[in-house]
Design a protein around this nucleic acid. Structure first.
Lengths: 156, 156
DNA sequence: GTCCATGCAAATGATTTGCAGTATC
DNA sequence: GATACTGCAAATCATTTGCATGGAC
Protein backbone atom coordinates (compact mmCIF):
# COMPACT_ATOMS: atom_id res chain seq x y z
CA UNK A 1 0.00 0.00 0.00
CA UNK A 2 2.71 2.42 1.02
CA UNK A 3 4.55 1.09 -2.00
CA UNK A 4 1.61 1.99 -4.20
CA UNK A 5 1.50 5.45 -2.70
CA UNK A 6 5.19 6.03 -3.33
CA UNK A 7 4.75 4.81 -6.87
CA UNK A 8 1.80 7.15 -7.35
CA UNK A 9 3.68 10.15 -6.02
CA UNK A 10 6.64 9.39 -8.22
CA UNK A 11 4.50 9.05 -11.32
CA UNK A 12 2.68 12.29 -10.55
CA UNK A 13 5.93 14.19 -10.24
CA UNK A 14 7.32 12.64 -13.39
CA UNK A 15 4.31 13.91 -15.27
CA UNK A 16 4.39 17.36 -13.73
CA UNK A 17 1.14 16.72 -11.88
CA UNK A 18 0.50 17.60 -8.28
CA UNK A 19 0.38 15.41 -5.22
CA UNK A 20 -2.84 16.28 -3.42
CA UNK A 21 -4.56 14.87 -0.39
CA UNK A 22 -7.59 13.92 -2.45
CA UNK A 23 -5.52 11.85 -4.84
CA UNK A 24 -3.78 9.97 -2.07
CA UNK A 25 -7.03 9.27 -0.25
CA UNK A 26 -8.63 7.85 -3.38
CA UNK A 27 -5.76 5.44 -3.92
CA UNK A 28 -5.81 4.52 -0.24
CA UNK A 29 -9.53 3.79 -0.35
CA UNK A 30 -9.13 1.39 -3.26
CA UNK A 31 -6.06 -0.24 -1.71
CA UNK A 32 -7.94 -0.76 1.54
CA UNK A 33 -10.38 -3.12 -0.16
CA UNK A 34 -8.09 -5.41 -2.16
CA UNK A 35 -10.71 -8.10 -2.62
CA UNK A 36 -13.48 -5.84 -3.79
CA UNK A 37 -14.46 -4.32 -7.09
CA UNK A 38 -15.57 -0.85 -6.17
CA UNK A 39 -17.76 1.56 -8.08
CA UNK A 40 -16.95 5.27 -8.25
CA UNK A 41 -19.76 5.95 -5.79
CA UNK A 42 -18.41 3.37 -3.35
CA UNK A 43 -14.94 4.88 -3.55
CA UNK A 44 -16.48 8.30 -3.02
CA UNK A 45 -18.20 7.09 0.17
CA UNK A 46 -14.98 5.50 1.42
CA UNK A 47 -12.92 8.62 0.82
CA UNK A 48 -15.49 10.82 2.52
CA UNK A 49 -14.77 8.97 5.75
CA UNK A 50 -11.27 10.43 5.87
CA UNK A 51 -11.78 13.47 3.63
CA UNK A 52 -15.42 14.58 3.89
CA UNK A 53 -15.10 17.56 1.61
CA UNK A 54 -14.12 15.64 -1.52
CA UNK A 55 -16.32 16.01 -4.59
CA UNK A 56 -17.58 13.14 -6.69
CA UNK A 57 -16.10 14.69 -9.82
CA UNK A 58 -12.67 14.62 -8.22
CA UNK A 59 -13.08 10.94 -7.46
CA UNK A 60 -13.98 10.29 -11.10
CA UNK A 61 -11.02 12.31 -12.32
CA UNK A 62 -8.60 10.60 -9.94
CA UNK A 63 -9.87 7.14 -10.83
CA UNK A 64 -9.29 7.90 -14.48
CA UNK A 65 -5.78 9.08 -13.71
CA UNK A 66 -4.96 6.01 -11.61
CA UNK A 67 -6.23 3.80 -14.39
CA UNK A 68 -4.06 5.55 -16.97
CA UNK A 69 -1.07 5.10 -14.70
CA UNK A 70 -1.96 1.38 -14.44
CA UNK A 71 -2.19 1.60 -10.67
CA UNK A 72 -5.76 0.36 -10.75
CA UNK A 73 -7.69 -1.82 -13.20
CA UNK A 74 -11.06 -1.01 -14.68
CA UNK A 75 -13.68 -3.77 -14.89
CA UNK A 76 -17.14 -3.64 -16.32
CA UNK A 77 -19.50 -6.37 -15.16
CA UNK A 78 -22.29 -4.86 -17.24
CA UNK A 79 -24.45 -4.09 -14.21
CA UNK A 80 -24.60 -0.37 -14.84
CA UNK A 81 -21.43 0.57 -13.00
CA UNK A 82 -17.80 0.61 -13.98
CA UNK A 83 -15.73 -0.92 -11.21
CA UNK A 84 -12.12 -0.62 -10.13
CA UNK A 85 -9.65 -2.77 -8.23
CA UNK A 86 -5.96 -2.56 -7.43
CA UNK A 87 -3.84 -3.01 -10.54
CA UNK A 88 -2.35 -6.31 -11.60
CA UNK A 89 -0.43 -5.10 -14.62
CA UNK A 90 2.73 -6.87 -15.66
CA UNK A 91 4.85 -3.84 -14.89
CA UNK A 92 3.56 -3.82 -11.34
CA UNK A 93 5.31 -7.08 -10.51
CA UNK A 94 2.32 -9.35 -10.96
CA UNK A 95 2.90 -11.88 -13.70
CA UNK A 96 -0.57 -12.92 -14.72
CA UNK A 97 -3.86 -11.17 -14.75
CA UNK A 98 -6.37 -12.76 -12.47
CA UNK A 99 -9.85 -13.78 -13.51
CA UNK A 100 -13.30 -13.55 -12.01
CA UNK A 101 -15.91 -16.00 -10.87
CA UNK A 102 -19.28 -14.31 -10.84
CA UNK A 103 -22.15 -15.87 -8.92
CA UNK A 104 -25.37 -15.66 -10.90
CA UNK A 105 -27.47 -15.84 -7.75
CA UNK A 106 -25.89 -13.55 -5.16
CA UNK A 107 -23.71 -11.49 -7.49
CA UNK A 108 -20.57 -12.09 -5.49
CA UNK A 109 -17.34 -11.79 -7.45
CA UNK A 110 -14.43 -14.04 -6.53
CA UNK A 111 -10.99 -13.54 -8.03
CA UNK A 112 -8.68 -16.35 -8.96
CA UNK A 113 -5.52 -16.91 -10.89
CA UNK A 114 -4.57 -19.55 -13.42
CA UNK A 115 -2.05 -19.90 -16.18
CA UNK A 116 -4.09 -22.15 -18.40
CA UNK A 117 -4.73 -19.40 -20.92
CA UNK A 118 -1.08 -19.19 -21.88
CA UNK A 119 -1.63 -22.27 -23.98
CA UNK A 120 -4.73 -20.86 -25.59
CA UNK A 121 -2.96 -17.63 -26.41
CA UNK A 122 -0.23 -19.55 -28.20
CA UNK A 123 -2.78 -21.45 -30.24
CA UNK A 124 -4.55 -18.28 -31.24
CA UNK A 125 -1.38 -16.55 -32.32
CA UNK A 126 -0.32 -19.54 -34.39
CA UNK A 127 -3.65 -20.13 -36.08
CA UNK A 128 -5.02 -16.64 -36.67
CA UNK A 129 -1.90 -14.50 -36.50
CA UNK A 130 -3.42 -12.46 -33.71
CA UNK A 131 -0.86 -11.41 -31.13
CA UNK A 132 -2.44 -11.68 -27.70
CA UNK A 133 -1.10 -9.35 -25.04
CA UNK A 134 -3.76 -9.52 -22.36
CA UNK A 135 -6.96 -11.30 -21.51
CA UNK A 136 -10.08 -11.06 -19.48
CA UNK A 137 -11.84 -14.21 -18.32
CA UNK A 138 -15.12 -14.39 -16.47
CA UNK A 139 -16.73 -17.58 -15.31
CA UNK A 140 -20.39 -17.47 -14.40
CA UNK A 141 -22.04 -19.96 -12.09
CA UNK A 142 -22.99 -20.57 -8.49
CA UNK A 143 -20.79 -20.02 -5.47
CA UNK A 144 -20.63 -22.39 -2.55
CA UNK A 145 -23.23 -20.49 -0.52
CA UNK A 146 -25.61 -20.49 -3.44
CA UNK A 147 -25.44 -24.18 -4.20
CA UNK A 148 -22.13 -24.59 -5.96
CA UNK A 149 -20.70 -27.34 -3.78
CA UNK A 150 -22.35 -30.13 -5.63
CA UNK A 151 -19.15 -32.13 -5.90
CA UNK A 152 -17.76 -32.34 -2.40
CA UNK A 153 -20.84 -31.83 -0.38
CA UNK A 154 -18.86 -30.28 2.44
CA UNK A 155 -18.06 -26.65 2.16
CA UNK A 156 -19.86 -23.87 3.78
CA UNK B 1 -32.58 -17.14 -40.12
CA UNK B 2 -35.99 -18.42 -41.04
CA UNK B 3 -35.46 -20.93 -38.25
CA UNK B 4 -34.78 -18.11 -35.82
CA UNK B 5 -37.87 -16.30 -36.99
CA UNK B 6 -40.05 -19.37 -36.48
CA UNK B 7 -38.57 -19.87 -33.06
CA UNK B 8 -39.22 -16.24 -32.20
CA UNK B 9 -42.84 -16.41 -33.35
CA UNK B 10 -43.41 -19.57 -31.38
CA UNK B 11 -41.92 -18.12 -28.22
CA UNK B 12 -43.99 -14.96 -28.58
CA UNK B 13 -47.19 -16.95 -28.90
CA UNK B 14 -46.28 -19.18 -25.97
CA UNK B 15 -45.92 -16.09 -23.82
CA UNK B 16 -49.11 -14.44 -25.01
CA UNK B 17 -47.13 -11.71 -26.75
CA UNK B 18 -47.82 -10.40 -30.21
CA UNK B 19 -46.01 -10.99 -33.46
CA UNK B 20 -45.41 -7.60 -35.01
CA UNK B 21 -43.54 -6.43 -38.06
CA UNK B 22 -41.17 -4.37 -35.94
CA UNK B 23 -40.14 -7.36 -33.87
CA UNK B 24 -39.45 -9.52 -36.89
CA UNK B 25 -37.44 -6.79 -38.59
CA UNK B 26 -35.26 -6.31 -35.53
CA UNK B 27 -34.41 -10.01 -35.38
CA UNK B 28 -33.81 -10.05 -39.11
CA UNK B 29 -31.44 -7.10 -38.86
CA UNK B 30 -29.31 -8.81 -36.23
CA UNK B 31 -29.39 -12.12 -38.08
CA UNK B 32 -28.25 -10.40 -41.26
CA UNK B 33 -24.93 -9.48 -39.66
CA UNK B 34 -23.86 -12.72 -38.02
CA UNK B 35 -20.22 -11.69 -37.66
CA UNK B 36 -20.87 -8.31 -36.13
CA UNK B 37 -21.56 -7.03 -32.67
CA UNK B 38 -24.18 -4.40 -33.19
CA UNK B 39 -25.18 -1.52 -30.96
CA UNK B 40 -28.84 -0.56 -30.49
CA UNK B 41 -28.28 2.44 -32.70
CA UNK B 42 -26.77 0.29 -35.46
CA UNK B 43 -29.69 -2.11 -35.29
CA UNK B 44 -32.03 0.87 -35.42
CA UNK B 45 -30.35 2.12 -38.60
CA UNK B 46 -30.51 -1.33 -40.17
CA UNK B 47 -34.19 -1.79 -39.39
CA UNK B 48 -35.05 1.64 -40.75
CA UNK B 49 -33.94 0.45 -44.18
CA UNK B 50 -36.86 -1.97 -44.34
CA UNK B 51 -39.17 -0.34 -41.80
CA UNK B 52 -38.49 3.42 -41.78
CA UNK B 53 -41.16 4.28 -39.24
CA UNK B 54 -39.72 2.26 -36.37
CA UNK B 55 -38.84 4.10 -33.17
CA UNK B 56 -35.60 3.73 -31.28
CA UNK B 57 -37.47 2.82 -28.10
CA UNK B 58 -39.09 -0.10 -29.87
CA UNK B 59 -35.68 -1.33 -30.95
CA UNK B 60 -34.47 -1.17 -27.34
CA UNK B 61 -37.56 -2.99 -26.10
CA UNK B 62 -37.30 -5.69 -28.74
CA UNK B 63 -33.61 -6.22 -28.12
CA UNK B 64 -34.34 -6.72 -24.45
CA UNK B 65 -37.05 -9.22 -25.30
CA UNK B 66 -34.83 -11.15 -27.72
CA UNK B 67 -32.13 -11.29 -25.09
CA UNK B 68 -34.53 -12.64 -22.47
CA UNK B 69 -35.64 -15.29 -24.94
CA UNK B 70 -31.95 -16.19 -25.50
CA UNK B 71 -32.28 -15.52 -29.21
CA UNK B 72 -29.51 -12.94 -29.05
CA UNK B 73 -26.54 -12.44 -26.73
CA UNK B 74 -25.61 -9.23 -25.00
CA UNK B 75 -21.95 -8.18 -24.92
CA UNK B 76 -20.38 -5.19 -23.29
CA UNK B 77 -16.94 -4.25 -24.57
CA UNK B 78 -16.88 -1.28 -22.23
CA UNK B 79 -16.72 1.24 -25.04
CA UNK B 80 -19.91 3.02 -24.07
CA UNK B 81 -22.32 0.81 -25.98
CA UNK B 82 -23.98 -2.46 -25.19
CA UNK B 83 -23.75 -4.74 -28.18
CA UNK B 84 -25.74 -7.70 -29.43
CA UNK B 85 -25.10 -10.69 -31.64
CA UNK B 86 -27.04 -13.78 -32.62
CA UNK B 87 -27.42 -16.17 -29.71
CA UNK B 88 -25.09 -19.06 -29.05
CA UNK B 89 -26.87 -20.51 -26.03
CA UNK B 90 -26.66 -24.21 -25.35
CA UNK B 91 -30.36 -24.65 -25.92
CA UNK B 92 -30.01 -23.19 -29.37
CA UNK B 93 -27.97 -26.13 -30.59
CA UNK B 94 -24.54 -24.57 -30.17
CA UNK B 95 -22.40 -26.47 -27.72
CA UNK B 96 -19.81 -23.96 -26.63
CA UNK B 97 -19.86 -20.25 -26.23
CA UNK B 98 -17.43 -18.52 -28.52
CA UNK B 99 -14.88 -16.00 -27.40
CA UNK B 100 -13.59 -12.70 -28.68
CA UNK B 101 -10.29 -11.40 -29.89
CA UNK B 102 -10.23 -7.63 -29.59
CA UNK B 103 -7.63 -5.61 -31.48
CA UNK B 104 -6.25 -2.83 -29.32
CA UNK B 105 -5.30 -0.79 -32.37
CA UNK B 106 -8.19 -0.95 -34.83
CA UNK B 107 -10.89 -2.15 -32.45
CA UNK B 108 -11.91 -5.04 -34.64
CA UNK B 109 -13.54 -7.93 -32.84
CA UNK B 110 -12.93 -11.45 -34.11
CA UNK B 111 -14.89 -14.40 -32.76
CA UNK B 112 -13.39 -17.82 -32.21
CA UNK B 113 -14.25 -21.04 -30.51
CA UNK B 114 -12.20 -23.27 -28.29
CA UNK B 115 -12.86 -25.94 -25.71
CA UNK B 116 -9.82 -25.33 -23.58
CA UNK B 117 -11.82 -23.78 -20.80
CA UNK B 118 -13.63 -26.99 -20.02
CA UNK B 119 -10.54 -28.11 -18.15
CA UNK B 120 -10.26 -24.86 -16.26
CA UNK B 121 -13.90 -25.02 -15.25
CA UNK B 122 -13.36 -28.46 -13.79
CA UNK B 123 -10.39 -27.26 -11.78
CA UNK B 124 -12.33 -24.33 -10.41
CA UNK B 125 -15.26 -26.45 -9.36
CA UNK B 126 -12.98 -28.92 -7.62
CA UNK B 127 -10.84 -26.38 -5.82
CA UNK B 128 -13.25 -23.63 -4.86
CA UNK B 129 -16.59 -25.39 -4.98
CA UNK B 130 -17.86 -22.89 -7.49
CA UNK B 131 -20.10 -24.49 -10.09
CA UNK B 132 -19.34 -22.91 -13.45
CA UNK B 133 -22.15 -22.83 -15.98
CA UNK B 134 -20.94 -20.30 -18.52
CA UNK B 135 -17.94 -18.22 -19.36
CA UNK B 136 -16.86 -15.14 -21.20
CA UNK B 137 -13.32 -14.86 -22.53
CA UNK B 138 -11.78 -11.86 -24.20
CA UNK B 139 -8.27 -11.75 -25.56
CA UNK B 140 -6.73 -8.37 -26.27
CA UNK B 141 -3.90 -7.85 -28.69
CA UNK B 142 -3.10 -6.96 -32.27
CA UNK B 143 -4.73 -8.43 -35.35
CA UNK B 144 -2.81 -9.39 -38.45
CA UNK B 145 -3.46 -6.08 -40.19
CA UNK B 146 -2.24 -4.16 -37.15
CA UNK B 147 0.99 -6.08 -36.71
CA UNK B 148 -0.12 -9.31 -35.11
CA UNK B 149 1.84 -11.72 -37.28
CA UNK B 150 4.98 -11.32 -35.27
CA UNK B 151 5.76 -14.98 -35.65
CA UNK B 152 6.85 -14.35 -39.21
CA UNK B 153 9.19 -11.70 -37.87
CA UNK B 154 7.70 -8.72 -39.59
CA UNK B 155 6.00 -6.46 -37.16
CA UNK B 156 5.56 -2.79 -38.07
C1' DG C 1 3.16 33.79 -8.67
C1' DT C 2 1.98 30.16 -11.98
C1' DC C 3 -0.55 26.43 -13.17
C1' DC C 4 -2.82 22.55 -11.90
C1' DA C 5 -6.60 20.64 -9.14
C1' DT C 6 -10.97 20.98 -6.87
C1' DG C 7 -16.00 21.46 -6.05
C1' DC C 8 -20.14 22.69 -7.70
C1' DA C 9 -23.57 22.74 -11.02
C1' DA C 10 -24.81 22.02 -15.53
C1' DA C 11 -24.21 19.03 -19.62
C1' DT C 12 -23.90 14.62 -21.87
C1' DG C 13 -25.46 10.46 -23.83
C1' DA C 14 -27.08 5.75 -23.77
C1' DT C 15 -31.03 3.62 -22.21
C1' DT C 16 -35.75 3.60 -19.99
C1' DT C 17 -40.36 4.93 -19.23
C1' DG C 18 -45.15 7.36 -19.39
C1' DC C 19 -48.75 7.94 -22.22
C1' DA C 20 -52.11 8.26 -25.90
C1' DG C 21 -52.94 6.25 -30.19
C1' DT C 22 -52.59 1.77 -32.98
C1' DA C 23 -52.25 -2.92 -34.22
C1' DT C 24 -52.66 -7.89 -33.17
C1' DC C 25 -55.34 -11.66 -31.82
C1' DG D 1 -63.17 -5.60 -28.56
C1' DA D 2 -59.55 -6.34 -25.23
C1' DT D 3 -54.98 -6.05 -24.57
C1' DA D 4 -50.45 -5.66 -25.90
C1' DC D 5 -47.38 -2.70 -28.84
C1' DT D 6 -45.61 1.47 -30.82
C1' DG D 7 -43.70 6.16 -31.34
C1' DC D 8 -42.78 10.23 -29.29
C1' DA D 9 -41.05 12.99 -25.79
C1' DA D 10 -39.66 13.37 -21.30
C1' DA D 11 -37.12 11.11 -17.57
C1' DT D 12 -33.15 8.58 -15.72
C1' DC D 13 -28.67 7.92 -14.17
C1' DA D 14 -23.68 7.17 -14.38
C1' DT D 15 -20.16 9.86 -15.92
C1' DT D 16 -18.04 14.17 -17.91
C1' DT D 17 -17.18 18.98 -18.34
C1' DG D 18 -17.10 24.30 -17.68
C1' DC D 19 -15.81 27.55 -14.70
C1' DA D 20 -14.38 30.22 -10.79
C1' DT D 21 -11.87 29.39 -6.61
C1' DG D 22 -8.26 27.27 -3.99
C1' DG D 23 -3.90 24.76 -3.39
C1' DA D 24 0.74 22.71 -4.73
C1' DC D 25 5.29 23.83 -6.08
Amino acid sequence: MAADEERFKRLLKEKGLKVTGQRLYVLEAIASRPEEHLTAEEIYELVKLSYPGIGLATVYRTIQLLNELHLIDRINFDDGFVRYEMGHAKDSGQKHRHHHLICLKCGRVISFQDDLLEELEGKITASVGFQVVDHDVRLYGYCVECGGDFIEEKRE
